[in-house]
């Protein structure tokens, strides 16, 4: 990684901070903020720029508050030390963001499925949405599946049917043993899935 500033200049600033210089923090920020933000942004190319800026800024502000954290005798340059802290901050922020998203989704799902009575219009919207979620793939599948039995099986599956006997009835194999019925039903389902998948990928 290229040096963002002369090491001697940074070392002098570090010393100033240790001695209690009140303005050295501003100089450190002016010197390091932009180059380290650009470098960190390249390291996290698909990350929101606000998160990157936050991680780098916090790393510099943390260091200036506690310059003793940096041990100059270890041979690591100050900009490298701050860069590492910034990357760690960004990683932590991303992890936190991910956790927050999962929590929100979980909470949202729980809310959606909760039996709380909603106002009439909201109830309608939810029902409509649920209906659409079933109807749209059904309509698509019906155009792809040519066989009547396959269509019926797929329709039942989308409606949430799971009993083997029901599918066996459609396939007209209820006279066979339960084991054979299960196998045949599974085979039919797998075939339908494969046809639909193939069609989806060819589009």
């Amino acid at each position: 990684m290229p040096q963002v500033c002369e090491p001697a200049r940074l070392f002098a600033l570090h010393k100033q901070l240790l001695q209690g210089d009140r303005t050295a923090s501003e100089e450190v920020a002016s010197l390091l903020l932009t180059p380290i933000t650009n470098q960190t942004s390249r390291k996290f190319p698909f990350t929101d720029e606000h998160i990157v800026a936050e991680g780098v800024t916090d790393a510099i502000l943390d260091y200036c508050e506690n310059p003793q954290k940096f041990d100059a005798t270890r041979g690591v340059p100050l900009d490298g030390f701050i860069r590492m802290a910034a990357r760690r901050n960004v990683s932590n922020l991303l992890r936190g963001e991910k956790r927050r998203k999962v929590r929100e989704e979980k909470y949202g799902r729980a809310k959606l499925e909760s039996p709380v009575e909603l106002s009439g219009s909201v109830g309608n919207l939810l029902q409509k949405d649920k209906k659409m979620r079933v109807q749209r793939p059904m309509a698509e599948a019906m155009t792809i599946l040519k066989d009547k039995k396959d269509q019926q099986i797929h329709k039942l599956r989308l409606q949430g049917e799971r009993r083997t006997q029901v599918f066996a009835q459609v396939l007209e194999i209820n006279h066979l043993t339960a084991e054979v019925q299960r196998r045949e039903v599974k085979r039919a389902k797998d075939r339908i899935d494969k046809v639909l998948e193939r069609n989806k990928s060819s589009r």
Binding site: A29, S30, L33, T34, E49, A53, E54, T57, D58, I60
Partner: peptide, 20 residues
């Protein structure tokens, strides 16, 4: 991504420093 400018990063940092 556009490279960050010095003025922009300094303003952002000063905003963050308001809680410290």
């Amino acid at each position: 991504k556009q490279p960050y400018s010095n003025a922009r990063t300094l303003v952002f940092a000063a905003e963050r420093a308001k809680i410290r």
